[in-house]
Design a protein around this nucleic acid. Sequence first.
DNA 1: ATAATACTCGAACACCTGTTCAGTTGTCAA
DNA 2: TTGACAACTGAACAGGTGTTCGAGTATTAT
Lengths: 225, 225
Amino acid sequence: MMMMVRKSKGLGERHQKILDFIASYQREHKHPPSIREIGEYCDISSTSVVNYYLDQLEKAGLLERDRKISRGMRLVGNTPLGDMLRVPVLGVIQAGEPIPVPASDFSLFDADESVEVATSLMPAKEKGKDLFALQVQGDSMIDAMINDGDIVILKPAQDVRNGEMVAIWLSDKNETTLKYYFKEKDGYRLQPANPQFKPIMIKKTEPLEIKGKVVMVIRKVDRYN
Amino acid sequence: MMMMVRKSKGLGERHQKILDFIASYQREHKHPPSIREIGEYCDISSTSVVNYYLDQLEKAGLLERDRKISRGMRLVGNTPLGDMLRVPVLGVIQAGEPIPVPASDFSLFDADESVEVATSLMPAKEKGKDLFALQVQGDSMIDAMINDGDIVILKPAQDVRNGEMVAIWLSDKNETTLKYYFKEKDGYRLQPANPQFKPIMIKKTEPLEIKGKVVMVIRKVDRYN
DNA sequence: ATAATACTCGAACACCTGTTCAGTTGTCAA
DNA sequence: TTGACAACTGAACAGGTGTTCGAGTATTAT
C-alpha cells in the first residue's frame, strides 16, 4: 500500500521539486531536461505523470511549454536563466526613511519589480540568492557617488568588514546613508565614496544600524532631469 | 608529403548565416533550432551538410553542441543568450587620454573583455549591437558621479540631443570628460551630473569631439582602497 | 458506503531529430 | 590528366521524446 499525500491548494512538494530540478538541470546542462529525466529524478515512474504535473505548473503560470518540441520548457518568473540573476527590488532608499530589508523568508515571487544582473558582473561570490535591490530616491546619496534613480544591489549584512560599503540607518539623525565602513578604536568611521567629502565619525555609544552591504550600483542614464 | 590546406580563411558566408539564424531563432523561440530548421532557412537541402557546418563552427569555438540531444546547441562568445547583451570593453577612459572608439567594422570577437547586461535594464531601445563599454580610470569623472573602476556603457554618438550624457574629448584641454550636453545659442553647455559642480561653457569656435552617448553606468562595489 | 476527485501506472504510438553512409560535384595542386 | 579534398546530396536508420489511453489506487465529500 502506498501512502499518497494530496494537497488540493497551491503547489505541492512535488511541484516544487520538479521546478527545482528544472532550474538546476538547466544551470548544469544549459538546456532543459526531458520529461523522462524529470521523472527519474523525482521518482515518478511514468512520463504521463510528469506531463500531468507539467500541465499544472503551466496553468499556474510558473512554466512555459513548447509542446511537441523536445525539452521545450522554460521557467518563468524568477528564472535565473543562463547566467542571469534576478534580484528583487524591495523598495526605495531615501534619506528620511528606513531601509526596507528582506524578511527572513522572503522570496522574490511577490516583489513588485526586479532587476536582472549577469552573474559575471557580480564581484566575488556574492551570487547568493539573498541579494536584494533598492532604488535611490533623492540626491542625498551624492556623497556616495550615487544619484537619484540609481539602483543599488545589497546583500544582507552579517559579517561587515572594514572597507566595505554599507547601508546604514542612523536612527538619531533619522537618516539613511551609504558609506564605507571602518571600525576604529573609539567608534566607527563612515567614509563617503567621494573623497571630496569628509568622513563621519560615530561614537560607540551612538546608535548605528547596518542594514546591508552594497554589492553593486547600476545607473541607467537617460536624460538630465 | 605536402598537404595544402585550401580555404583556410575563417568563416564563410554560410557559417555566418547559420550563426545569425541560430541567434535570431533563439531569440524568437527561446530555444535553439533543429538541424533541419537550420537547413531550411539557409537553403541547405541535406541535414548532413548542416551537421557538417555545425562541426566546423564547433571546432572554431563559436558553438557548443550537446550531440544526441535535440536542439542541443548554443552559441558561445558573443551570445546574446536569452535576454542578455554582451558589450565589449574596448579600453579605459581617463582624463589625459583620448577615448577608444569602435572602428566602423568592429566586432566583439577580438575585444579583450566584455560585460554582460540584461536587456531589461537597457533604457529605451538602445539594444542595438553597436554599444561598447569603457572602464573608468582615475578620479577625474567624479563630477559626473562616476568613480574609479566604474564601467560606462556607451553608444556611438550620432544624434545627440539636449540633456543626454556624452563622452567628450576636449582636444585643447587634452581632457576626456563625461557631461550632460546642452546646445545653446552661442555654444555648448556641459553640465556635470553632480549639481554641486558648475557647468562648463564651450564656445562654438572651440574644438569639441563627441565620442559617444552614455547609456549606463555599472559599479562593482568591492572595497575602499 | 458511494461517488467524485486527485493521483499514479505502464505501455504503445508517432513524430522529431541527430547520425551515418555511399555517392556526386567542383576546385586546385602536382 | 590525376589525385586530393572540400562541399554537397539523398536516403535510411536508430534512438529520444511528447502524447495519449486504459486502467488502477488513494483521498475527500456527501
